[in-house]
Write a protein that binds this DNA or RNA. Structure first.
Lengths: 112, 112
DNA sequence: TAAAAATGTAACCATTTGGTTACAAATATA
DNA sequence: TATATTTGTAACCAAATGGTTACATTTTTA
């Protein structure tokens, strides 16, 4: 694996990596502790951790033979900003729905 | 291409697809108009469009021989929510920085 | 009706991805 | 010191990805 084109969007495109992020956001764990949460092999997790480290989403604190992984999710802010620029696409729809429900509730004709 | 495991995270992991989204969010265009904005071939763009359509990020309105693509970015809301649950990871840092700058400005010792 | 335009898609290709097993290395423990 | 623990990584593999060219189809236009 050469791990090219590493960016935060690609990092979070894998569901396992998203779960790792969620786990580590809760509390730091060493690599084995992370691996134990998944049905796949430790080396596979090790690779995911490497990818997440490479794009700055987690930081490794070496402690003896253990590597403690902690979430450093600043760069998720970039994704947040990118998606938020399109917020109108779902909030408008939401508002329209709310409006509709409100009106429906207000002037609902008796179902006779 | 079998296009398996199609979800919004994977859809936006490709930079070309993110650009397509940005383009179409501005205004709908037919497939050729989209393809003309990129240095890659029309079939390549056609595949990207297909992927975006499959995961609901764009909608195709057929009009004669043309296919007008329009952005339907509701499902980006999912990504927004997912990232926002980790907001503290970058806003805290931001607050800390602001605080630091504010204090630095307030009580900055004269550099003598 | 013949030609042009817009698009889909098949067949192909190289690279990347995400997993595996096997082994090595460093550190901690009995 | 011998053994167990924690991790890295090499070598391998199948499938997915992102691109290409070539050709077919449908619709519009001259």
């Amino acid at each position: 694996m050469k791990e090219l084109r590493r960016d935060v969007y690609q990092a979070i495109s894998d569901p396992v990596r998203r779960e790792i992020i969620t786990l580590l956001a809760e509390k730091p764990r060493n690599l084995n502790a992370v691996a134990n949460e998944f049905p796949i092999s430790r080396p596979a997790i090790s690779k995911h951790i490497k990818i997440l480290t490479e794009c700055g989403l987690i930081h490794i604190r070496v402690e003896g033979r253990e590597r403690f992984c902690e979430a450093k999710l600043e760069s998720l802010g970039e994704v947040s900003e990118w998606t938020n620029q399109f917020k109108r696409f779902w909030t408008n729809k939401l508002n329209a729905l709310e409006m509709h429900l409100k009106n429906a509730g207000k002037s609902k004709p008796k179902k006779k």
